[in-house]
């Protein structure tokens, strides 16, 4: 049995996540099989693209239920980017009801200043607001790679572990119990990102 399972639901290129996991010694399979998610030791829930089509793909194969069961059974789960966004109750993107793993909404960046580019694309500082085992390797000033036009607005402040500034301050790392998720891409964030993946590889799901 491999160490981790990367959920494949037609939402982006998963091999970059798999390669980064391999770099930190985490053997990860890519699978679209809900039963494999139920059996997995740990799960990575990535994704790029639109919330609406991602939800449709998940529901079509029953992956939404499998993911909920894995989380309920205590499996450590890491959401990345769109994976984080569709973990909340609702996304403004296409007015889409989403998984409801965490309470809150996802909103679109809206700026009056035309010089502020959308999507928020590039490297930005991640500031930890409270400790979490997955963020143990983070140092002040560390930057991660972001690409997103929407941002999460958790309903409960205790879900927020790290924040980033892009005109507004938004939650870029959220979690509850054995579920943790980042808006940024650890797999594209150099050695700082690899450290985060290594911490996830050793996380037992408690915090």
């Amino acid at each position: 049995m491999t160490d981790a399972l990367i959920i494949d639901y037609d939402a982006g290129n998963l091999r970059s996540v798999q390669r980064a996991c391999a770099e930190v010694g985490l053997t990860a399979d890519i699978s679209a099989d809900p039963d494999a998610v139920r059996r997995a030791r740990r799960v990575i829930f990535p994704g790029v693209g639109a919330a609406g089509s991602a939800m449709k793909s998940l529901i079509r194969v029953g992956m939404d239920q499998a993911l909920k069961e894995a989380i309920a059974s205590g499996t450590p789960v890491l959401g990345i980017c769109l994976g984080l966004q569709i973990s909340f109750d609702h996304s403004e993107e296409g007015d889409t009801p989403t998984l409801g793993l965490l309470p809150g909404r996802v909103r679109r960046f809206r700026f009056d200043d035309p010089q502020l580019k959308i999507p928020h694309m590039g490297w930005n500082e991640v500031r930890r607001v409270k400790p979490h085992p997955v963020l143990a390797g983070l140092s002040p000033g560390d930057e991660f790679y972001f690409v997103h036009g929407y941002y999460p607005e958790p309903a409960e402040p205790e879900l927020i572990y790290a924040v980033t500034d892009y005109e507004i301050e938004f939650a870029c790392a959220v979690g509850r119990r054995n579920y943790f998720a980042t808006q940024f891409h650890p797999e594209k964030s150099g050695r700082v990102g690899l450290r985060l993946l290594k911490a996830f590889a050793g996380w037992d799901g408690t915090c």
Binding site: S16, R19, K188, G190
Partner: peptide, 8 residues
Amino acid sequence: VAEQVFIP
């Protein structure tokens, strides 16, 4: 390159 370079 993708095997060993973890930036975009």
